[in-house]
Amino acid sequence: MVKVKVIERPVPTVSTEIYLKEVLKGMGVSAKHFFQGITTQKNLVTTQYPEEKRPYPKRFRGHHRLMKREDGSARCVACYMCATACPSHCITIEAGEREEPYIQKYPRKFEIDYLKCVFCGFCVDACPQDAIRMDSDKHRIPAYTRQDEMAGNIDLLKLGGLSQARQGGKWS
């Protein structure tokens, strides 16, 4: 048996049909809010935006950042997983060769075209090295030229931090 919640419909009575009493009641509510509003600032729902900002939710996907190793270089190993996962093809990676035996590649160029990026977070999911994250709590700030909308690896590294994840597979 499905439980149905029956809501009582207000039945029009003489006093509601005359409408005047209801009008006064409604104006009373407005007046209450009015006096509340001018005496206390308690019930305000407004955020005064540029001065006060609402905190971002914990899982907010913001501007990308490239994580760093202890020596300050990018953790990225230029595996192209993020570029492959990216639905809008906004990530351009050019791999360079490293001298180290276990991690052989590094991104010579790691560029995100923010005119194309849809902030889906697939690149973060795809990354096997915890090298790219979107938890920077920053919006992408609009730019005046198309060139400025391309964030290169230097920009992305500036936001980056140290990652504690182990890197380099079983040989390291």
């Binding site: 009015f34 509003g37 019930n43 407004t46």
Partner: peptide, 10 residues
């Protein structure tokens, strides 16, 4: 201003 105050805005 009055509409704002009545609607709990600024």
């Amino acid at each position: 201003k009055m509409s704002a105050v009545i609607q709990d805005r600024v």
